[in-house]
Simulated scan of single mutants.
Amino acid sequence: MTEKINSFPQVLTIAGTDSGGGAGIMADLKTFQMQKVFGTAVVVAVTAQNTLGVQDSFLMPLELIDAQFTSLAADFKIRTCKTGMLGDAAHVHQVALNLKKYDFGPITIDPVMVAKGGAPLLSKDAVKTVKEELLPLADLVTPNLPEAEVLTGIKANSEKQYPALAHALQEMGVKNVLIKGGHAENELVRDYALLADGTDFWISSPRTHTKRTHGTGDTLAATITAQLAHGQTLSAAIKLGKQYVAKAIAETIQVGHGHGPLNHWVKIN
């Protein structure tokens, strides 16, 4: 029986909590469960949050960040991991140190900067640390349009500039890039993927006009992370992630008074 220990796909989210249950670690763990992988977590921050916004937040002590990483590495066989809300430069740095120390498989960086309700989730001084210390560790980075613009300094006025954003991110050391187009105004939501071998592709889904999109980026990155743990290729994992998120938005559930959560119960083929 010993050879079967740790044989089940195990993944890790490194992020902040959402007391409202729609985003952050809560969204990641729900997504992992639906994708049939075992989810673990390093809690970087705790937020007081609901669908109306973020009311308060607390960053965990740096030594507790280290302790969580050490604890997971001592027991689990984590195949893939992702990051989300990291708070400030010191916490980004500490997470980067631990990702260098432990091999948790391919790393997906979701460079979370602002909550759906507008609250900042990454300090301005931390952007430099993300660019210099975290992005070079990433196998995949999944910024939305505003995040990609902040990271690259390129203002994208149309979808034609998505490849320029992606190439600029690759020049920072990221192997693979997914630019999410949800912030654009088009009726078709188009995302652009640029892979390490130079190949690229677009993925599209009809826009669902709803405020219930809280946790979209977390859920997409978590789905990709889970699918990679199952052995899917990166391009297949990205496409499955897009399919899951589009369906989770379209088949809405009525929770909260503001930017409501996705329907994580949906299933994809």
Rank of each mutant, 00 (worst) to 15 (best):
K247M: 14
L194P: 00
T13A: 03
V43Q: 08
A229L: 06
D197W: 07
G117S: 15
G53C: 08
L178Y: 04
V112C: 09
K124M: 11
M85A: 12
I107E: 13
V150E: 02
N263P: 09
V245W: 02
H167T: 15
S204F: 01
R79G: 13
P163M: 02
H167N: 09
Q254K: 15
T219Y: 03
L178N: 02
Q254H: 15
K160C: 09
K175W: 07
T233Q: 06
P136N: 01
S71I: 02
A115S: 15
E132V: 10
P9M: 12
F201G: 08
V114H: 01
D110F: 01
F38K: 02
T225V: 13
K175P: 03
V46P: 12
Q35L: 14
K155H: 13
V37S: 06
H93K: 14
A67P: 08
F32M: 13
L234A: 09
P111M: 03
N6Y: 09
L59A: 06
F201T: 07
F38E: 05
N186D: 05
T210W: 06
A221M: 11
L29W: 00
G21A: 04
T233L: 08
I78P: 00
G53W: 10
D88N: 15
W202I: 11
A27R: 03
I14A: 03
L86S: 09
A164R: 10
V189E: 01
E149K: 08
N176H: 06
G39H: 06
K4T: 15
Q49I: 02
L134W: 07
K160G: 14
F69D: 10
L240V: 09
A168H: 01
V189Q: 06
V112E: 00
F32E: 09
G153R: 04
A248C: 04
I249Y: 03
I5W: 07
T219R: 00
F201I: 05
T219P: 03
H259R: 14
P136S: 04
V177C: 06
V130G: 05
I238Y: 10
Q227G: 04
E185D: 14
W265F: 15
P143F: 02
D197E: 07
V177P: 00
D191K: 01
L97M: 13
I107W: 05
G181V: 05
Q49A: 03
V150I: 15
G84Q: 02
T40N: 13
T210Q: 03
Y192T: 10
L137H: 01
G215K: 10
I78V: 06
T108W: 00
T83W: 07
A221E: 11
E171H: 12
M85S: 11
M172K: 15
H167Q: 15
Y244H: 03
T199F: 10
P206Y: 05
D110R: 00
N98D: 08
P146T: 11
A90D: 12
W265R: 12
A67R: 05
L262A: 12
G260M: 13
I107C: 08
